[in-house]
């Protein structure tokens, strides 16, 4: 390995066998400090599984507002940035395609005839708790969604809050990955609740009964 060409050259005496461990230690500390001073984008990668649920015989419009598509969580006093929009759209696409016989993207709450209703998911809040604050070994994430269902003329059929939770064990020097895992678990939790409890939500149930669709 070549000696460092800049930075550490001025601090370290001429390389010799005895100084190599110290040079390595200084380099490691410098790299760790550099990592600490930069922002960390929380990775939210991976495929979401298809839910095993019976599809409701409905033709649903799926509406994603720009607030959802571009939702990002960034705290001024934190180095962590969480891009929640795109992975949530991917998640909802996956579950809605299995929850309804037809799930068609729409751009308005009044798509007109041809649709039984429109469903619109939104993220209201994203909160996380770090182990340093909670005193536990886990990163904990809570995502509060709002799910709204409209009739084809834009009238509200149902609107309710869905609170999803995920946690992941803290990893040394990799807080971004731990927070990313906790966030993905919270999103999976949301998918689990929505895909299994949608038709049992009080107002939706009444609407389905009125339509004779169960």
């Amino acid at each position: 390995m070549q000696p460092a060409q800049h930075g550490t050259d001025a601090l370290v005496p001429a390389p010799s066998t005895g100084y190599r461990p110290r040079l390595a230690l200084i380099s490691a500390i410098a790299m760790a400090l550099a990592a600490c001073s930069s922002n960390i984008s929380v990775p939210l990668k991976g495929q979401f599984p298809e839910p095993i649920v019976g599809a409701l015989p409905l033709s649903m419009g799926i509406l994603y507002q720009d607030e959802l598509r571009t939702f990002r969580h960034e705290e001024p006093d934190s180095r962590l940035k969480v891009e929640l929009g795109p992975p949530n759209v991917k998640l909802f696409d996956q579950i809605f395609s299995k929850m309804f016989e037809q799930a068609v993207p729409v751009t308005t709450q009044q798509p007109g005839p041809g649709f039984d209703a429109v469903v619109e998911p939104m993220i209201e809040t994203f909160e996380y708790l770090e182990p340093a604050i909670s005193g536990s070994e886990f990163y904990a994430v809570t995502i509060r969604y709002r799910i709204s269902v409209y009739d084809p003329s834009g009238g509200v059929i149902a609107s309710w809050s869905l609170v999803a939770y995920g946690k992941s064990r803290s990893r040394a020097l990799n807080s971004g990955q731990s927070l990313g895992e906790a966030t993905l678990r919270a999103m999976r939790d949301a998918a689990a609740i929505l895909s299994t409890e949608f038709k049992d939500q009080k107002q939706v149930k009444a609407w389905l009964l009125a339509r004779n669709t169960q």
Binding site: P49, E50, I52, V53, R188, D189, A191, A192, T196
Partner: peptide, 25 residues
Amino acid sequence: MFPWFEPRLAPATPDALPELLKQPG
């Protein structure tokens, strides 16, 4: 098996298995 073995939905006791197996698919 998604979502039936997610933390929120996973059966807590064997008594919940018959109900789980009634779910479509």
